[in-house]
Design a protein around this nucleic acid. Structure first.
Length: 829
DNA sequence: CGTCAAACCTAG
DNA sequence: TGAGCTAGGTTTGACG
């Protein structure tokens, strides 16, 4: 294969999307298929206005991977022809894009439709079937939850970032952040503006950098998918549930349960009920709720053992034969059965008196008064399905142990057991499904919950009634018990814990099993569903593992500064049990915040955007506010539904509602007059969670803060923008610090320092050099990341801490320039 | 100033 | 147009 004749291509682009589709994964050419034949390509016809063309020799200079074949076309229409040729050549089953609504495939489709090309149909494997291949040019809110809004017959289209939302819990789902957390690599980010200028640049090298940028992303998409074994796992789920690959990603859990359940029901001649919307609405409301104890909220210096019932709900279904097909209805109603059908689920059940008589000695009654027939009369479908699932899972886990060496098989088996676990846990949800349920049955659902509650209550009772253990149940939620063992050692806790587990398991029918989970030493129980502790899973574990549930360190609705400080505080507290160390740490962090020395990155909140129609009228939500702002500038810039929108809180004049202080992180970088609202972050974000923790120890963090000296940072006049922004607090300051001694002064350099011009000179020069050095180093780091030597087009990835420091360093660099002027003035004296 | 609903996210 | 479930805590602003 020889290189294609090169002719330049230029396409007219909409404002926001330069130079082509976002990140499109096409089947990459096979390695080694193309040799390194790099004969010089013919010059393009001079007649083309664009003098810019790329010679293959430049490939080498630019360092782009040699397995790359570039095709040049004259028009956008021809570009589509080439794309279609590629698709028909490789005939991929799966097309991936990182974001396929506005960019990537969605962008291609929109451009194509603008040129009256029905790309959807042309890309499909059944071109005649126009109905099945479609995309929505006007993105609507529906389908936002799904992995794709584009349908192409015969091919699967994956919207990678949306899939990642379910795969990994991240604060922000940008490409760079996902790459960092999944691949552990920093990937540079260029703005569309930068990309456009790279593409349109006169020098070839820059256009190559543009191409390289997209190549990295395309390849990165594949590596992310690979790393998470997305395809393998999804295929395995599809096999386990017996549904299509794409449905694993796009449909809900009801679909999975039904798929498995109906397969079992059919041979037994069962037809599932299909209630109407009305019938569903008329169904009785659930009456039972899971047991959640109110914990005694305090610090626990003694060992606390955590015991969990293993898959409690599925176990209960199996143990008591709870199922749609074994349920006879409520005990109260059964006497009416002689008169006709009785209420049952969302429909009626007709039981003849003779049947009732026959089974009446072979039934169990659930604690909430619902009657089920016993196993020997009829084995329930759900219960046998769940039974099979749990047994299979145990088998799979066993074979995982046997084939430890085979990594591929391990992954497959792990995916399989995970899928089985998921389906077991969700089967209960299916019986209780409310507004959307295809076949809900509240009697069954309630019985499960009630029985589980009873099981847990009996377990708690047993623990409390056995004085030999000296144990006290301090908390429990649905299927777990937290037991305090006052005055016992960690090792004793493991022994007693195991003993309790065995006793409780013994008093319950198979397969209900209480499992020893971990020992907390020490721990803090804050409220229901919120606790934290140092956990030990085995007696010989030396170092404890920090384990938090429900508190801010694991929540994504506060910024990372909050979770970092809270986590650090807890660790200091648990390790040293010394409040004075905690105080020292917290006050130090507050000072850093007030001095503006905390990285802005740690102050970024990110919340899910629900779309314009997703909010109540008049809602004042930061994500919505930012979306509106973005839309004013560019109507294609609206965040996707479900996207996590980042924002920070800045200073503003007193009395303004919080929503007015919401800014995009970029705004803060571009506008030096904006400053992180340290007061807000400290008093509204950092201190409240700390208070909830430390107040349990009788410590008042707020008073610590109130008693500490406050740092007031003053914005130098030089950084004030010409037109002062109304509403920002900066305008209320008129004084400045002396750049030499940092004392307040109304002079450029304070009178005191001016007495000693030599000192001024040395001190300022020193600072200038330092700033410049930092700036230079940071630029170097960024250049390494981008694989370039010169810094013309810096990366602006909001997820990269280096980028932030570089911008700050640039501001320092700017300050250095001004200091130079100051210095020159000072030297004149 | 207390109460309430909405918004968000997590535990199980 | 499709959508497992409930409990729970916290922040925020509107309202009385």
């Amino acid at each position: 294969m020889s290189p294609q004749p090169s002719t330049s291509k230029d396409t007219s682009q909409p404002k926001t999307s330069p130079g082509g589709p976002g990140s499109k994964v096409k089947t990459t050419p096979q390695k080694g298929k193309r040799s390194k034949s790099r004969s010089p390509s013919p010059r393009p016809p001079r007649s083309l206005k664009d003098t810019d063309y790329i010679e293959d020799t430049l490939l080498e200079k630019s360092g782009v991977n040699g397995d790359l074949k570039v095709t040049y076309v004259d028009s956008e229409e021809m570009l589509f022809d080439e794309v279609l040729k590629l698709i028909s050549r490789w005939d991929p089953d799966i097309l991936v894009g990182f974001e396929i609504q506005n960019f990537s495939w969605g962008y291609l489709l929109q451009r194509a439709s603008h040129l009256s090309i029905n790309l959807c149909a042309l890309m499909s494997r059944i071109p005649e079937d126009k109905r099945k291949s479609s995309f929505k040019a006007e993105s609507d809110e529906w389908g936002a939850d799904h992995s794709s809004e584009i349908h192409i017959a015969g091919r699967i289209i994956l919207n990678l970032w949306r899939l990642m939302r379910h795969e990994v819990a991240l604060n922000i789902y940008t490409y760079e952040n996902i790459a960092f957390h999944v691949l552990h690599e920093r990937i540079p980010h260029f703005s569309f503006q930068t990309l456009s200028s790279l593409f349109n640049h006169r020098t070839h090298l820059y256009r190559w950098r543009f191409i390289q940028y997209y190549l990295t992303r395309v390849e990165g998409n594949m590596r992310i998918i690979d790393q998470l074994d997305l395809i393998g796992r999804t295929s395995e789920f599809a096999r386990v549930f017996g549904i299509e690959f794409y449905h694993v990603l796009s449909r809900g859990s009801q679909y999975r349960v039904e798929s498995m359940m109906l397969r079992l029901a059919k041979p037994m001649n069962f037809i599932p009920v299909s209630p109407s919307v009305n019938q569903r609405a008329r169904m009785k409301a659930p009456e039972c709720i899971a047991l959640t104890l109110e914990p005694e909220s305090r610090f626990y210096p003694d060992p606390v053992i955590v015991l969990d019932f293993q898959s409690l709900y599925p176990s209960i279904m199996i143990a008591h034969n709870y199922c749609f097909s074994t349920c006879v209805g409520r005990l109260d109603y059964l006497k009416k059965a002689y008169d006709g059908p009785i209420e049952f689920g969302c429909t009626n059940l007709r039981i003849t008196p003779s049947t009732l008589d026959k089974i009446k000695d072979h039934v169990t009654v659930s604690p909430n008064g619902v009657v089920f027939v016993k196993k020997h009369i009829r084995k329930g479908i759900i219960s046998s399905m769940v039974d099979e699932i749990l047994n299979t899972r145990i088998m799979v886990k066993k074979s995982m142990k046997e084939y430890k060496k085979d990594k591929g098989l391990q992954r497959l088996l792990d995916a399989r057991q995970l899928g089985l676990k998921l389906i077991a846990n969700v089967t209960y949800g299916y019986t209780g499904a409310n507004f959307s349920g295809r076949m809900p049955c509240i009697e069954v659902g309630d019985s499960i919950v009630r029985k589980a509650r009873e099981t847990l209550e009996r377990a708690i009772q047993l623990v409390e009634d056995t004085p030999r253990w000296g144990a006290k149940v301090v908390y429990g939620d649905t299927d777990s018990m937290f037991i305090e063992l006052k005055g016992r050692s960690k090792d004793e806790a493991f022994v007693i814990g195991q003993e309790i587990c065995d006793a409780v398991t013994a008093m319950n029918p198979k397969p209900i099993k209480l499992k020893f989970e971990k020992v907390y030493l020490p721990c803090v129980l804050q409220t229901k569903k919120r606790y934290v502790g140092y956990s030990y899973e085995t007696p010989d574990q030396k170092e404890p593992v920090y384990d938090a549930k429900g508190i801010e360190t694991v929540r994504r609705d506060s910024c990372s500064a909050v979770s970092k400080i809270l986590e650090r505080t807890i660790k200091i507290l648990f390790t040293s049990r010394d409040v004075s160390q905690v105080k020292e740490y917290i006050l130090k962090q507050c000072t850093k915040l007030m001095q503006g020395k905390v990285s802005m990155q740690d102050c970024i909140f990110a919340k899910e955007y629900r779309g314009m129609k997703g909010y109540k009228p008049g809602a004042c939500v930061p994500a919505l506010e930012i979306a509106k702002k973005l839309l004013r500038n560019d109507r294609r810039a609206e965040p996707r539904v479900g996207e996590r929108v980042p924002y920070v809180i800045v200073y503003g004049s007193p009395g303004l509602p919080l929503i007015m202080l919401v800014r995009q992180p970029q705004e803060l970088l571009q506008d030096p007059s904006l400053r992180i609202n340290a007061t807000y972050y400290i008093t509204k974000q950092i201190l409240p969670p700390l208070d909830r923790l430390l107040s349990l120890l009788g410590v008042d963090v707020f008073s610590w803060y109130n008693d500490m000296p406050k740092v007031v940072r003053v914005l130098p006049q030089s950084l004030m923008p010409a037109e002062k922004k109304k509403g920002t607090i900066s305008q209320f300051f008129s004084t400045v610090n002396c750049p030499v001694c940092d004392k307040l002064t109304n002079q450029t350099i304070c009178n005191n320092c001016m007495q000693n011009p030599q000192m001024v000179c040395v001190s300022l020069c020193d600072r200038i050099t330092k700033w410049e050095k930092v700036h230079q180093t940071l630029i170097q780091i960024c250049n390494t990341c981008m694989g370039v030597q010169d810094e013309r087009q810096p990366c602006d990835s909001l997820d990269c801490p280096i980028m932030f420091r570089r911008v700050l360093a640039k501001q320092d660099h700017h300050k250095a320039d001004q200091l130079r002027v100051t210095l020159e003035k000072a030297l004149e004296f």
